[in-house]
Design a protein around this nucleic acid. Structure first.
Lengths: 118, 118
DNA sequence: CGTATATTTCGACTATTATGGAAATGTGAG
DNA sequence: CTCACATTTCCATAATAGTCGAAATATACG
């Protein structure tokens, strides 16, 4: 019954995403891919004061949705796809009625056969 | 560019789910199916004071994730699968890296064919 | 009607989250 | 070593969210 762990983790992730600026940041980082973006670049793109952005980046990091690495003077943030995957998994598993949710959104996705390991 | 509408809606939904009791309620209602459950039954099952529960149910309703209907003296709440579907769609579309997210969740799903009519 | 049941609204309060300027920290260059 | 740069931490403040008892509302029943 380590189920509570999952829902706690889920709530953390949901809370992290449930905020205008943070959702914007996360979308940006998902687009940016594995390379990620520097805090400065993110801050500029999203348009909030640096200290506020730092706060939001910390929230997302704490929720495990993004990772941080240093590259010289800059801190580079990148989306953690596995974490997002896990979140989607939880929601699909617990919050979707049978077959309905998690549709293969629009684009052609034929040989979808990636077995979930989680 | 009615894109902002979507992300606003998404944030509302995420905020609604990002709370221990509300996530519990929503999961409960997803299980309960189209029939739904009375406020009283939910309150008892989740174990919070009635007035608190009322607050949470209002949040979920306001986010469009659940529906309310009256049945005699009781108010019956039910999960709105379409809304959850839309949320999953947004996340898959905007917050998932290419093919990775929204997997065909683990369990054997052979003849599961209950068309959720919603 | 009057009474019991189901649930919400009100109100007062506590707790958590968000904001942003100023100061501190880490890093590289000259 | 000093300076510029990138970013965070600190702190005070404002805003929002959550809690729950008590009073109000809606519905049914005799």
């Amino acid at each position: 019954m380590h189920n509570k762990f999952h829902s706690e983790q889920t709530i953390k992730a949901l809370s992290a995403l449930a905020q205008e600026h943070r959702l914007a940041v996360f979308r940006l980082l998902v687009q940016a891919g594995a390379e990620g973006m520097s805090a400065g670049a993110i801050t500029e793109k999203v348009g909030v004061p640096a200290s506020s952005m730092s706060f939001h980046l910390a929230q997302l990091t704490n929720a495990g949705l993004i990772t941080q690495r240093r590259q010289s003077r800059s801190l580079i943030y990148a989306a953690d796809y596995a974490a997002m995957n896990a979140l989607m998994g939880y929601l699909t598993e617990n919050c979707c009625g049978g077959a309905s949710c998690a549709p293969d959104t629009s684009r052609p996705r034929d040989s979808v056969d990636e077995r979930k390991v989680v």
